[in-house]
Amino acid sequence: MSESLLRVSRLFKRFGGVNATDDLSLDVRAGEIHALIGPNGAGKTTFIGQLMGEVRPDAGDIHFDGASINGLSTAARVRRGIARTFQITELLTEDTALDNVALAVQAGQGHSFRFLGNAGADRSLLAPAREYLTAAGLAERADVRVSELSHGERKQLELAIALASKPRLLLLDEPMAGLGAAESRRMVDTLSSLKGSIAMLLVEHDMDVVFALADRISVLVYGRVIASGSPVEIQADTQVRAAYLGEGDA
């Protein structure tokens, strides 16, 4: 196995009296899909926030690609090769799907202190943007304003934008939530086609999806990893069944 691309050691974060992240250690190897599951309120989104630098951990260390990224801003982490999708979509709703992706492509091409050329007619932005939209299954909806896209299409757009920053690690915050059956299937197809080339940390409630995609699974409860292992091991783990899977599949 290749070595870890992301290594999180002993991360702590408290909000008021609540441990959102409690001595959390975890790693993601290059190219693998590592799923993070756990009941609502387990601290999954807070954890992603800390990986992205939006939330400052109280203690602990985050290593990416062999270097500590603790002090880096969100934007700097993205430039190092980490991208995320948002659970509640965070898009430029007044712009078209294509504009959203083109802007991410633009951000990946270095600084944007270019004041005169028309970015809306720049093929070096639009051509790759269309490719990412195609990869995410949104090619036909490129020129539709985000405000007119369906919920599922917005989730796909989130993915296309994340891909446009050419990440080596993709943090997916419940990419399936709210998707219909067909949309969900397409998302799974898209993600499995990317498997191997981009490492992913997949936060997801849909167990079928998790077991279909993940190489490894960690279970988070009250900010703590209570189990970690292959899908088979996790399925067999009695502690997990009691704490989480036993809750039913709501």
Binding site: T74, V78, R79, A83, E90, L103, A107, S112, I161, A162
Partner: peptide, 8 residues
Amino acid sequence: RMAAIGVS
């Protein structure tokens, strides 16, 4: 969103 695509 801008931060998430790597723009400071």
